[in-house]
Simulated scan of single mutants.
Amino acid sequence: MARREKNRGRHLRGQNAIRVIEFMELAGEATPRKLVKHLQLSNKQAHRVFERLTAAGVVVNQGKPRYPNYRLAPYWKLRTRIKAEKSPAERPRITEECRKSTAMKRVLSVYGMGL
């Protein structure tokens, strides 16, 4: 129990964990065999991913220990910190932001590159 509490809210490091969560959002539930079949993971990888996700509180085993059937836990999004990457078009370029500042405008005007 102490290990489970310690791991809550951790970043999900591996791409496999993120792929499993995306798969479970679509399918609703998953077993290690389904992951082996659909995501081309090995049996050991599938079990390890489910162990990490269970310890983090993201998934819940609703099956038996020898025949696991996992579902996403209620409020699982609160327990994960998956960072969505912004596309380069959405991010402001730092040079554009700096040129808009009054201090930078003064510097650029001294060097003859003012806007």
Rank of each mutant, 00 (worst) to 15 (best):
Q62R: 15
V36C: 10
Q40E: 03
A27H: 12
E96T: 03
P68N: 14
P68C: 13
N43F: 00
N61G: 12
G28L: 04
S87D: 05
S109N: 06
K34I: 03
A56N: 12
Q40K: 11
A30I: 05
W76Y: 15
L26T: 08
V49Y: 05
V58H: 11
P65I: 03
E25N: 08
V110N: 03
G57E: 06
K86D: 04
A46Y: 02
V60H: 06
F50C: 09
R19K: 15
A73L: 05
R19S: 11
L41T: 03
M1C: 05
I18C: 10
Y111S: 12
T80P: 05
T102D: 00
Y75E: 09
L26H: 10
L39Q: 01
E25L: 10
E97D: 04
K34A: 15
E85L: 07
L26D: 10
A84S: 14
N16E: 06
Y111E: 08
R71S: 13
K44T: 07
Y67C: 04
P32L: 07
G9Q: 10
R79H: 14
Y70L: 13
I18A: 15
A27K: 15
F50E: 02
R19H: 07
R93T: 01
R3L: 06
Q15I: 13
G28P: 02
N61M: 10
A55C: 01
A56C: 08
L115W: 03
H47E: 12
R4E: 09
R13N: 14
H47C: 14
A2T: 01
A103G: 10
L53E: 00
A55R: 03
M1L: 09
V59G: 10
A2Q: 06
A2L: 06
K83L: 09
H38L: 02
G57R: 12
Q45E: 05
